[in-house]
Each structure stands twice: as structure tokens, then as C-alpha cells.
Amino acid sequence: MQQRSTALIAPILIVACSVAQAETFTVPAEVGFADIVAVSDAVRNECTLQTRLPEFIKDGARGDVDIVISDEPLDNVAGKVLRLEYVNILGAGGGAWSGPKSATVSGELWENGELIGSFVASRYSRGGAFGGFKGTCSILGRCIRTLGVDIARWLGDPTMDARLGNA
């Protein structure tokens, strides 16, 4: 009888430990552009890069970490907070016909006022298959979708001065 009760308890303990291991990170609902970024008004206003990256980070986490997207200022949030900023966008209009597109993001991970991790992440694309038929926003979207996965993976084991993606 003792083996049977142990067999029932072991899976429960494994599930409880798995749930406890997922850390929670807060990311901003909107990622801003550094003052040095020369991005066209069309890309800035039409591509919605600012709000799509946080969603891609959340999607890329796949349960490894818990991502909370916050509309409130991150200064008001306790726990682990990821500050993000676009530091470079290469995205001339004209889709793939106007050359490759890229996005570069810097991030700092803070916990209760202490910097515990940082990175620069970059991805570029020429549009992939049928790239000539895709618009600039679509191609930049591919870049930031992959950046979201890169960043989510980094959150699983954050380090200082990490280089992610093509950075």
C-alpha cells in the first residue's frame, strides 16, 4: 500500500514545483523609441511596433516565464520589471524592394530597484519567401516576432550585457 500512496504524491509534487518555478516579469504595454532612432512617421504610426513587441514576448514565453503586460508606469510596479527601448529601426517604405529591414531593442531587467540583467537584441529580414510581395510593416513584424522569442528565452536565464539574435 505504501508504494501506491507514494506514486500518487510524486506527480503532485512535480506539478507544484513546476508551477512555483515560473517567474513573473512585467513588461511595458508600449515600447518607446530612443531619441537617436531615425524612424519614418509611416513606420512609427502604421507598423504598431510599440505595442506588438510586448505581445510577442508574452507569446514567446510559452509558460517558461510568466509575462504581465502593464499599462501603468513601470516605476509603480514591484518585482521583476523589464524596461525596453527601440534603439534602431531600419525600415524604408517599399517592402522588400527597398532593402532589408531590421529592429534593435535594448533592455534592462530590474528587481526592486536593482539592475539584474541587460541586453541588446537585433533581428533583420529581407522578407523571406515571397518577400517582394510583403510590405515594410509585415517584414518588420517578422523581426520583432523573433525578437519577442529571443527576449522571452533570455528572461529564463538573464545575464548582464547579453547580445541576442543578430546583435
Rank of each mutant, 00 (worst) to 15 (best):
Glu114Ala: 05
Leu8His: 02
Pro158Asp: 00
Gly165Glu: 06
Glu46Pro: 01
Ala61Leu: 11
Glu111Tyr: 09
Ala96Gly: 07
Thr26Ala: 06
Ala16Lys: 01
Gly94Asp: 15
Ile57Ser: 02
Asn112Val: 05
Asp75Leu: 15
Asp75Met: 13
Asp75His: 12
Thr6Val: 00
Ile36Ala: 12
Ser118Lys: 05
Ser138Gly: 02
Asp150Ile: 07
Asp66Phe: 05
Val77Glu: 04
Glu23Tyr: 03
Asp41Ile: 06
Gly91Arg: 01
Ala38Lys: 06
Ile144Ala: 01
Ala10Met: 12
Ala38Val: 11
Arg142Cys: 03
Ala10Ser: 07
Gly94Arg: 14
Arg52Gln: 14
Trp97Pro: 00
Pro28Tyr: 03
Val39Tyr: 07
Gly127Ile: 09
Leu164Trp: 12
Lys134Tyr: 07
Ser118His: 07
Asn88Met: 04
Val68Trp: 00
Ile139Leu: 08
Val65Phe: 12
Thr51Trp: 13
Asn112Asp: 15
Gly94Asn: 14
Glu85Arg: 02
Val31Ala: 07
Arg123Asp: 10
Phe25His: 02
Phe130Tyr: 13
Pro54Lys: 06
Pro11Glu: 14
Pro11Gln: 12
Pro28Gln: 01
Gly135Leu: 07
Gln50Lys: 10
Gly113Thr: 04
Phe25Tyr: 15
Arg123Thr: 04
Tyr124Gln: 11
Val77Trp: 05
Thr159Gly: 01
Pro54Asp: 12
Ala152Phe: 08
Leu90Val: 14
Asp41Met: 02
Arg153Leu: 08
Gly95Val: 05
Asp35Ser: 12
Val81His: 07
Arg4Tyr: 04
Glu30Leu: 09
Ile14Trp: 11
Thr159Asn: 06
Gly165Gln: 03
Leu13Ala: 02
Val15Ser: 06
Leu49Val: 04
Glu23Gly: 00
Val39Trp: 07
Ile89Asp: 01
Val27Gly: 01
Asp157Phe: 05
Gly93Glu: 13
Ser118Glu: 13
Pro100Gly: 10
Asn45Phe: 08
Gly99Glu: 15
Lys134Val: 05
Gly128Glu: 15
Gln21Lys: 06
Leu82Asn: 09
Leu53Met: 09
Arg163Tyr: 04
Ile139Asn: 02
Arg4Leu: 05
Ser122Tyr: 09
Ala96Ser: 13
Thr48Cys: 06
Ser122Gln: 13
Glu30Thr: 09
Asp59Gly: 01
Asp66Ser: 04
Thr159Tyr: 03
Gly60Thr: 09
Leu8Phe: 06
Gln3Trp: 10
Ala7Pro: 00
